[in-house]
Design a protein around this nucleic acid. Structure first.
Length: 119
DNA sequence: AGAATGACAGGAA
DNA sequence: GTTCCTGCCATTC
């Protein structure tokens, strides 16, 4: 039916797939923001969608721990179980985590270069 | 239909 | 440097 085709917004699986791919593209030892992933997925301004997809994800191989808020803070409540787990995984990759946050200004640029730079 | 919620972001204070 | 407030998007009550 036409209605069915026309109504499909973006909550479909292909959109989620693009987001997951962008997350998988983040190199080990690097980090990215929710908004950054959204932008690279062709979905500027939909950081919260990225967060939702991550929350519903069940793939153990997905590097979910490399995704932080734009200011470098871990998105989970400080001290919570997932919060500690994320900090642990990041440090395991050599990422400095200080008071639940990392300096990601440089990391973002480095990442952009790694992902987008032609050379 | 209106309000509340959340792994967000950006700018103001 | 931080904390606060507003805007956003999608989903759930």
């Amino acid at each position: 039916m036409l209605t069915r085709i026309m109504v499909t917004p973006e909550g479909n699986d292909s959109t989620r797939q693009r987001i997951l791919d962008a997350i998988r593209a983040v190199p080990r030892g690097e980090v990215a923001s929710y908004g950054g992933i959204a932008r690279r997925s062709g979905l500027p301004g939909r950081a919260r969608l990225v967060a939702r997809v991550l929350g519903e994800n069940d793939d153990a191989d997905l590097p979910w721990h490399r995704i932080l808020r734009a200011d470098g803070r871990i998105a989970f409540a400080a001290g919570s179980r997932p919060f500690r787990e994320q900090a642990k995984r990041l440090r395991a990759e050599g990422v400095a985590v200080r008071n639940g946050r990392v300096q990601m200004a440089e990391a973002e640029e480095t990442l952009d270069a790694a992902v987008w730079a032609p050379r």
